[in-house]
Amino acid sequence: MYRQSLILNDGVLSHSLQDESGTVFFNIYSGETLVLGLPLAIIEQQLTDPLSDLRQDDDGMSQLQSFISNVIVRPQSEFDGL
């Protein structure tokens, strides 16, 4: 069964690939993508507890944090009147 992508925050979609080869992220405003070679559950664990013993990918995690922080979530009011 196909699983819909999870919404990480208002501007980023994420999806843990079925074969557990990685997780894909998508910035819905800019169209940028990021692929990390870790399942989403481990990434979430890393985000909330960077010192955990789970598999780590320091470069990938900093890429993700940069990716998420670059997402500019504009308030709905900015779109009013367009």
Partner: peptide
């Protein structure tokens, strides 16, 4: 793909 938004992303996935 990047212009098609969530729909494009989900389709490629």
């Amino acid at each position: 793909f990047s212009l098609a938004g969530a729909e494009g992303f989900n389709t490629v996935v």
